[in-house]
C-alpha cells in the first residue's frame, strides 16, 4: 500500500499538483493500476485540495475511467447507429456468450473486460470490435472467436475456442458476408 501511495504521489507531482490537470492525473493513475482505486482518489483529492466528490464526479462521468478493476484485455463493441444497423447487437451477444459475462463486466479469470460504446467514429468499417486498442472492422459472428483468441493465448479454455474457431477464420468470415 505504501508503494502505491508513493507511486500515486509521483504521478500527481508529475503534473505539478495542479487542479487543471485532474483528468491527466486520473488517466495516469488509471494506466498504472488499470482502474481507479478508492484510496487513490482520496489521495488525489487531498493533494489537489479538492473535494472528493468533485473528483468522483469526474471519474464517474468519463467512460475512460473505471472504479472497478478491469481485466487484462479491453474488449469494446460498438453499438452506434451504423454498427447497430449492421448487426452490432448480435456480435455483442456472441461475445457475451463466448466470454460468459454481460456487457460492462469482467470475466471471472480477469482476462477480459467487455464494454459497449456508442460510436467509435469509424462507421465505414462497422460493425467494429476493438480489443486492446486494435480495431477489427467488418466484424461478423464467425470472426469473434479469432479476434478474442488473438490476445488470450496461454489459456486452457482458449484452446478449445481456438480449435472450434479455426475453420471460420478470415476466409470463412468473408464468404459468409458475400452470401
Amino acid at each position: 500500500m505504501d508503494t502505491d501511495t508513493t507511486k500515486i504521489q509521483s504521478l500527481i507531482d508529475k503534473h505539478r499538483g495542479l487542479k487543471k490537470n485532474l483528468i491527466a492525473i486520473l488517466l495516469d493513475v488509471q494506466e498504472s493500476f488499470n482502474y481507479l482505486p478508492p484510496e487513490s482518489l482520496r489521495q488525489v483529492a487531498k493533494s489537489l485540495d479538492m473535494p472528493l466528490i468533485d473528483i468522483l464526479g469526474v471519474a464517474t462521468f468519463y467512460r475512460a475511467f473505471s472504479l472497478k478493476p478491469r481485466g487484462k484485455h479491453m474488449c469494446l463493441v460498438c453499438l452506434g447507429t451504423a454498427c447497430h444497423v449492421r448487426g452490432g447487437q448480435k456480435i455483442l451477444e456472441e461475445i457475451e456468450r463466448k466470454l460468459g459475462v454481460p456487457a460492462g463486466e469482467n470475466t471471472p479469470d480477469g482476462q477480459f473486460t467487455l464494454e459497449t460504446v456508442a460510436c467509435l467514429g469509424c462507421c465505414a468499417i462497422g460493425p467494429v470490435v476493438v480489443v486492446d486498442g486494435e480495431y477489427n472492422g467488418h466484424a461478423t459472428i464467425r470472426k469473434v472467436g479469432p479476434i478474442l483468441d488473438k490476445c488470450a493465448k496461454p489459456k486452457k479454455s482458449g484452446q478449445k475456442r481456438k480449435a472450434g474457431a479455426k475453420p471460420a477464420g478470415r476466409r470463412g468470415g468473408r464468404t459468409a458476408r458475400k452470401k
Binding site: 478508492p38 482518489l41 473535494p51 472528493l52 466528490i53 468533485d54 468522483l56 464526479g57 464517474t60 462521468f61
Partner: peptide
C-alpha cells in the same frame, strides 16, 4: 460541506456521497 455531488451521467446520473457511503465531510 461539499459532501454530495453529481455522479455518473446520462440516465445513470445521480446525486450521492462519494462511494455511496457516509461522507467524512
Amino acid at each position: 460541506g461539499r459532501a454530495i455531488g453529481f455522479q455518473q451521467r446520462g440516465h445513470k446520473r445521480k446525486i450521492s456521497t462519494p462511494f455511496d457511503i457516509r461522507s467524512e465531510e
